[in-house]
Write a protein that binds this DNA or RNA. Structure first.
Lengths: 131, 131
DNA sequence: TATTTGTTATATAATAAGTATAACAAATAT
DNA sequence: ATATTTGTTATACTTATTATATAACAAATA
């Protein structure tokens, strides 16, 4: 699997796992209907505890990105199933705000920030385009 | 002062303080050369401990946003002093990535995300325009 | 000179993060 | 049918983080 844990990071391991799975889906490495590896096997792969991965999966479920079927596995939901509610949109905006504010205070221009946005989009989408 | 603490938030208090000071600067509520309130007075205002605010100030200093003069106070640095190094730009991009990725996976379009960006920009800049 | 300032130190408590084992019952594979 | 794998649940433990509470120090300021 594509996940790489940075043990010295200030970002918790379960959060690193969550983010990298999300980025993997955005990048098209895996898509709707695909099953995630079992918490035990992924934990063994990453060299971390089962519960750490389990926490990440439940975070993904809370975000509406996957469905966990008890005693079976975790499946990536389809785009139709993931509604994109107004609450979710608002949450994204709330997450965006401190990042943008920090960038501006550090002296980044609107153009610079929008340029970075495009880089992030490209980084997440281009590999899929290459198929 | 404009800072509002949400005690039930999963975001640590010192981090809430840091973010809201940054947003205050971005919004133009306070600018370069201005001094932040003393850690003791702000802590009293917010009803939190001195060290919590102190931690926030040192985080702001580490980000290059303020300068702490020992036994004197904390001053907001000028835009010229805040260099905006390539490392900082890269950090902003790194912060942006998981937020954008999550938005996309949840089904937000590029246009929707860019529209939210503009809302955030407006929210941070318009009040200053009104002066 | 008295007050305020950031700094430093120590102590304590609560919560979060992470690991370690173990057992259960349902789902799946053989 | 049996064995394995699965997510779930429970308990226990360690460590780090967050936050508070006091106190004292020395420099800056009023």
């Amino acid at each position: 699997m594509f996940i790489q844990i940075e043990p010295l990071s200030n970002v918790p391991i379960y959060e690193q796992v969550t983010r990298q799975i999300i980025e993997g889906i955005a990048r098209g490495d895996m898509g709707p209907g695909d099953t995630l590896p079992s918490v035990r096997s992924l934990a063994a792969d990453l060299g971390v505890n089962m519960h750490t991965v389990n926490k990440s999966y439940h975070e993904l479920e809370a975000k509406g990105i996957i469905t966990i079927r008890a005693k079976s596995g975790a499946i990536i939901r389809s785009t139709e199933e993931r509604a994109l509610t107004p609450e979710q949109l608002q949450q994204i905006e709330k997450n965006l705000k401190p990042v943008v504010a920090e960038g501006m205070v550090l002296g980044a221009t609107v153009d610079q920030i929008e340029h970075m946005m495009k880089k992030v989009f490209a980084d997440l989408q281009l590999p899929a385009e290459g198929v």
